[in-house]
Write a protein that binds this DNA or RNA. Structure first.
Lengths: 219, 219
DNA sequence: TGACTAAGTTACCGATCGGTAACATTGTTG
DNA sequence: CAACAATGTTACCGATCGGTAACTTAGTCA
């Protein structure tokens, strides 16, 4: 989710940009930051490089001195979003080491917290997937890898929790997580179905931990 | 929004389409059908009217004889998608009148069935919301109304089921539903997290029906 | 036959798209 | 100061965008 942008300090620049340790904000960074915001708000196809450069107080020529193409910028945007996402995930989970159940709950609590921001428009990577065409392979491959990593992490947490069927529980949690992101696109602030995520998470975990009813028979 | 184009030939009533088997398909219908497919596959912003007309075996001029603008076409596309969605919903639910629990299960079973088609790219309305900018108000208002109707229906089903907290249960189901649509964008065929939807639905309903733990809304 | 209509065809418009060339300006550093 | 790198400015390119005008073709029906 696109919230707050940390000014990605340790930046690897390509080619022409020699490393100067000065803390001054490079045009490249300003442009990139602006691009991230605009892509998140208006969608990737809905923002042109001219608009990005202008919004960053620069111009198209300076844009192309820092980025090989719009496509390269988009790729970097998605990578950055993923980087921030894992940082957010790790931060949310960190206070509860060796307590997978509490970690999952903390994750959804953190999601709800972000969802309350009025700048929230759900999952940047997921939204990108929704507007990407079939032929934009490189991008959707990137998003797919990210989503698969989310899934694996949830599986691992469910397994560490000792769930009876960790795959099912992990997948169920992923549905709740992504459902929260998806509905947040439509429902404003804290009034949407995402408010039910945490009770649902608890109920599902309970159902998978307590030795009550076995998994429902296959239809 | 200019809907003044009265050229909406008489086939508006649902049954009239299949009436005349030998009738040649009108250009308008061919174009509209093609547009729906292309919008769904490549996104609304990713398809131009020229491509639509060409794919329909026609040309741009004929397109503008039938549609006032691309925007009008998009609006009609979203309306049609919603119409089809409710028809699908009602069809899935019809075999189980007065059995809200079975209806909900049938709904998710039908969703899973559709998700297995390789042409499935999740929820057309929801995807549109993901790529719509903030300033495209008319469209997102349409999507919002649709999503709110989904939510209300799920609330009603949960209430009819006698759930302890019908709002929470309905919202939880909506998260699962939309999570299924969202993840289906990324995960192919029947291998994604959506396979966990039905077990999750059953577990959640069980938790809300059996006299377990109360769920105070975490306002 | 003639009138009407639906549709195809070609050419065009202004705006915007991603992307580039050439030149002017600034700020830092030796 | 001069050298140099980073950035701003203007103008331009070909392609595509949504949208329109004018003309032609073909089918239908009286």
């Amino acid at each position: 989710m696109g919230g707050d942008k940390t000014a990605m300090s340790g930046n690897e620049s390509s080619g022409a940009c020699a490393a100067i340790p000065g803390a001054k904000t490079r045009v490249r960074d300003r442009i990139f930051e602006t691009a991230c915001e605009l892509f998140y708000r208006h969608g990737i196809h809905g923002v042109g490089v001219d608009a990005i450069a202008a919004e960053a107080g620069s111009n198209k020529m300076s844009f192309y001195r820092s980025f090989a193409s719009k496509d390269a910028l988009v790729t970097e945007y998605l990578r950055e979003q993923e980087r921030e996402y894992w940082a957010w995930w790790d931060g949310a989970v960190a206070p509860y080491p060796n307590d997978p159940r509490r970690q999952i709950e903390a994750l959804f609590e953190a999601q709800l917290e972000i969802a309350k921001s009025n700048s929230c428009r759900g999952c940047a990577l997921g939204n990108a997937a929704a507007e990407l065409s079939d032929d934009e392979d490189e991008l959707s491959t990137l998003v797919r890898a990210y989503k698969e990593k989310v899934r694996k992490r949830l599986h691992a947490l469910a397994r560490a929790m000792g769930a009876r069927d960790a795959e099912i529980l992990g997948d169920s949690l992923m549905l709740l997580l992504d459902g929260g992101y998806f509905t947040r696109l439509i429902f404003p602030l804290g009034s949407g179905p995402i408010c039910a995520a945490i009770p649902a998470v608890r109920a599902l975990i309970d159902a998978h931990l307590s030795g009550g009813h076995a998994l429902p028979p296959p239809r």
